[in-house]
């Protein structure tokens, strides 16, 4: 079984997977060739037409016959072809966000993709800022996600906290049937 861990650059995807995975998280690179080059966070040079995307991989054996695979990837419009493979058969996605106002908007592209692909998802708010916490309701509102979509706080460095976010996703999937 497969779940995706998605979010903008530097939001804590790799850290999340390493907290949960029974193996050291593995990173592969995939070369993305985009038809229409755009400017975004990744490419400062607009004419650039191929990009290397890092894909994280981790796994957790739940039972002898049931293995959870976790894939971590950033989400952007031009990674669509990759997402087609990634989302096929995926149970759902954990969308990690950084709640600091200047970082929150970087999550929109990922949320767009997740919705386009019709993935069930929950939002995991990674608590970066030790100084203050951001009320989950405010984050929900800022991201304008539907009221049914769970928004949970998590510390991606902590195994139990990360596990809770995954369980929230599974509970959400169960509630959708």
């Amino acid at each position: 079984m497969k779940v995706l861990v998605v979010g903008p650059f530097g939001v804590g995807k790799t850290t999340f997977i390493s907290s949960i995975s029974e193996i050291e998280p593995l990173t592969t690179e995939e070369t993305i060739t985009s038809l229409s080059a755009r400017t975004d966070d990744l490419s400062a040079t607009p004419e650039k037409s191929t990009t290397t995307v890092a894909l994280d991989f981790g796994r957790l054996t739940l039972y002898d016959d049931l293995v959870l695979y976790m894939f971590g990837t950033p989400g952007q419009e031009r990674f669509k072809e990759l997402w087609e493979d990634l989302t096929r058969g995926a149970l759902g996605a954990l969308v990690l966000v950084d709640p600091r106002p200047e970082r929150l908007k970087q999550s929109f592209a990922v949320l767009d993709l997740v919705e386009q692909f019709g993935l069930a998802y929950v939002i995991g708010v990674n608590h970066f800022d030790e100084q203050r916490t951001y009320p989950l309701d405010e984050v929900r509102e800022a991201l304008s996600v539907s009221p049914e979509t769970p928004v949970v706080g998590c510390d991606v460095r902590d195994r139990a906290s990360s596990g809770k976010a995954l369980i929230t996703l599974v509970n959400h999937l169960l509630s959708l049937d």
Binding site: T61, L62, G163
Partner: peptide, 27 residues
């Protein structure tokens, strides 16, 4: 072939995944 489509995941399987996560992660 890769795992069949997500929407086919049945409740029993999801419940099993949840139980497995709880056991493995103490969450």
């Amino acid at each position: 072939p890769p795992i069949p489509k997500a929407t086919q995941a049945d409740r029993a399987l999801l419940a099993r995944i949840r139980a497995g996560l709880q056991e493995q992660l103490g969450a």
